[in-house]
Every structure is written in structure tokens, then in C-alpha cells.
Design a protein around this nucleic acid. Structure first.
Lengths: 227, 227
DNA sequence: GTCTATATACGGATAGAC
DNA sequence: GTCTATCCGTATATAGAC
């Protein structure tokens, strides 16, 4: 699978993200006309990600946000009850999407090699399709309320555990060598995250997500097969 | 070399960091008695790193800072002319220390293998000794003034280039295989950075900086020697 | 050299008009 | 459903006392 194909298979459009969000948070949004809500949510998320990722969520005021996306501050509060509410809901939403899609793509694969290969690709492709969301989530975790932060950290560990389990499975079947599975998963995660954390750098160097996937797959397999 | 030895060789104490800082910024600090300045700088940096790394530099007010470190807000402004000034000077200071020490340790090494080995260790050991500084620098880069941000990004690329050059040298001497040197340096950097970005995780799992150094050295050498 | 008190500005959130 | 006007709290930065 290449990125182009992944994109066709699951349409992670900005609109689809908002539609899903609306369904899950219908009760906490004061506006009731679906079409309006989705249109405005799209504007809110794009603006919030743009401003936050440029200068940090804390530095973004709700006035900044309303100016950028076109609604008044008052109207904004019909969608999110507070600035913190916006942060928490965005984090939660990203994490739901990610866990759902990873599971969808990994479960069908049978052997460890194919699972790991798929995990690398799906994680990179997802973070490519939703780059601002991933960057936002990473950079703003420490600014969240304690309970929300714990949720986010747990979600991050859950993803790491998917990798750990694949490695253990591969070691049992003797398809991978016996390196520490936790450490292995950890550095694999670090490489996966570098893609969305340093996206500008890779863009400047004309490295596509497919190039990157191929390279780190080579690195990972070289060491997992190295005695 | 192990971490314990590195620590003995260069005493990166909090005090020595402040002393060096004082020498380089003597003119912009209104207080003149060296002893007082160094004592207060130490308090300021510790408090700023503590608060910033917990909830972000933007979210830290100068009042927070003065409460935490014991000076009045007014007195604080005798040391730093603004909150932004504090951010920029801290970034610059960290980057001076890092470049200086990396050069000191890498230059004497002759062959590429030893240079790379040393680079991995020195970077990890430095980021261990100055973890709050490294974390701060990484997380707050995007919040800096444009010129300061460009400096920081350039400094980061300079470090990456040290790695790239070592890899190229090793490839010429046929001690490493022909993988893309830029991409190789890039993912090595990602693994080095993971150490200070996820320090809590590794602490929880009882992974020491020496364990980590050994593990990623194994990963890196496995792939650099893999045809 | 350091502290207290304060000027000035801006942010989050809401009430009420339309 | 959305906008304007506004309250109240808090931020940076400084002036002047000690």
C-alpha cells in the first residue's frame, strides 16, 4: 500500500472529521442545524490548529480564534463551553480516529512482519493526512487538565503497546531476533513521531511520506533481524 | 565512557551554567554584584524551567515566576527586560553550551565509528545533565521571535550536520554502507531527542541513559552496516 | 539593589439586542 | 443563531519607596 491508495480508501477529509465530531458531541453544542454546525466546526478546527501550531494554544486567545475563523466570540461559545473544552475535545477526537483506523488496518494482517509493516505505514499515513492534529496533540499534551492528560498519555501508550505486541509475536515465531520489545517499540515510535514533528524539514528536502516509510522500515528490519 | 565519567569530566552544575551566563550577559543585567546575580539567576532558571516544562512558557506569568523563585516582579525585571528576553536568552545560552561541548568531544576522535559512538553518547549525556533545558528548548522553539527561532533551527541543523558528516566520512572509508546520509542523520537525531522528550517514560521503566545509549548504538550500527 | 504599589492593556466569558 | 458591548480578572511593565 502507498499513501495515495490509503487516501482513497479512507477519506479523512476535514469535513468528514467534523461530521464525526458533530455526531459524538451533539448534546454539548447549542446550535442545532447540522449543516451550519459542520461548516463552522471546520472553520474553528482549521483556525485553532493554524494559530496553535504557530504560537501555542495558550497564546491563542478566543478573540484570535474568532477573528481568524469569522464567527464572533459569543457565537464561538455556542460550540465550545470554554477554551479548555475545545482543547480537551480536540485531543479526544483525534485519539478516537487514530485508534479506530489503526485497529481496522492491523487486525486483518496475520504474520508479525506484515503487521509491523502495516503499522508503520498506517501510522505515518494517518499522521500525514492529519498532520496539524498530530502536531497539536503532541505539543499541547502537557497543557491539558490532569485527567485529560492522563487519557492522552494512556492513548499514546496503547499505540506503543500495539507495536510491542507485534514484536513479541514475531519473536515467538522466530521471525524477529530477541531484542527488548519495549525498547524496540519505543524507538520505532520515536521515528514515527519524527515524521509529523519535523514535517517542514522533510518537505524542504523533498522526502515524501512513502520515502520515509521505506527508509525507516529498512532501519527497523535491519535491527530486528540483526542477531 | 559512561555517564558517571562524563559528569566528572565536565561539571555542568546549575551554578556553572549561571556563572557562564552572567559573563556573557553582564551588560544587560542591572544588578552588579556578581554573587547576588548568580544566586538569583540560578533561582530564576530553575523556576522558569520548572513552571514552563509543566504548563508551557506562555502560561507562565512573570508573577508565577517571581512567586516561585522569591524575588519581586520588579526585581525580576532587573535581570531580564521582558518575558521574551528571558526566553530568547535561555535558548541562546543552551545552544552555546551544547555546540561547545559537542565540538570538544568529537574533534579529537579520528575514525568515523568512534566519532559516531562519541556523538551518540555526548548528545545523550548532555541532554541528561541538562534535561529541563533541552525539553524547554524543543517545546518552546515555535513561541520565539522569528530571528531567535531561525537561530535555534539553524543550531539544530548544525548538530544534525555533525552527524551527517561523520556518516559520510565513514562511507568513504567503507566502514559504513551507502544509505542516504541525510536521512540516516535525521532518524539518529530523532532517537537522540526521544531521550529527553520522554524522560519520564524511560525513568518509569528503569532505563538509564547508559542503557539507552547502548540500545540505540546497536540499532544504528545494525543498519549502517546492513547492505 | 530590591521591594511595594500601580498604570495600562488584554483575555475569558456572558448578557442581551437583533 | 449570531453579534455587540461589557464585566471582571489577570498580565506585563514601571515608578518610586526603602
Amino acid at each position: 500500500m502507498k499513501y495515495a491508495e490509503f487516501q482513497k480508501q479512507i477519506k479523512i477529509t476535514r469535513k468528514s472529521i467534523c461530521k464525526e465530531f458533530y455526531k459524538q458531541n451533539q448534546d454539548s453544542i447549542r446550535i442545532k442545524k447540522e449543516e451550519t454546525v459542520i461548516r463552522n466546526l471546520e472553520k474553528i478546527f482549521n483556525a485553532a490548529l493554524k494559530i496553535s501550531n504557530a504560537k501555542g494554544f495558550q497564546a491563542m486567545s478566543m478573540r484570535d480564534l474568532s477573528n481568524e475563523m469569522g464567527l464572533s466570540t459569543g457565537a464561538l461559545y455556542a460550540y465550545f463551553s470554554s477554551k479548555e473544552d475545545l482543547l480537551n475535545k480536540m485531543q479526544e477526537h483525534r485519539h478516537n480516529i487514530v485508534m479506530h483506523i489503526i485497529d481496522k488496518y492491523i487486525s486483518p494482517e496475520k504474520n508479525a512482519y506484515q503487521k509491523l509493516d502495516m503499522m508503520i505505514k498506517v501510522h505515518l499515513y494517518l499522521s500525514e493526512a492529519m498532520q496539524p492534529w498530530f502536531y497539536f496533540s503532541y505539543m499541547e499534551t502537557k497543557n491539558m487538565s490532569k485527567s485529560q492528560r492522563e487519557k492522552t498519555v494512556a492513548a499514546s501508550f496503547a499505540i506503543e503497546k500495539v507495536i510491542t505486541d507485534i514484536i513479541k509475536q514475531g519473536q515467538e515465531k522466530r521471525c524477529f531476533n530477541k531484542h527488548d520489545p519495549d525498547m524496540s517499540a519505543s524507538i520505532i515510535k520515536a521515528m514515527l513521531q519524527d515524521w509529523y514533528l519535523k514535517r517542514k524539514k522533510y518537505a524542504t528536502r523533498n522526502i515524501s511520506v512513502d520515502d520515509y516509510a521505506e527508509f525507516i522500515k529498512m532501519v527497523i528490519m535491519a535491527f530486528l533481524n540483526n542477531p
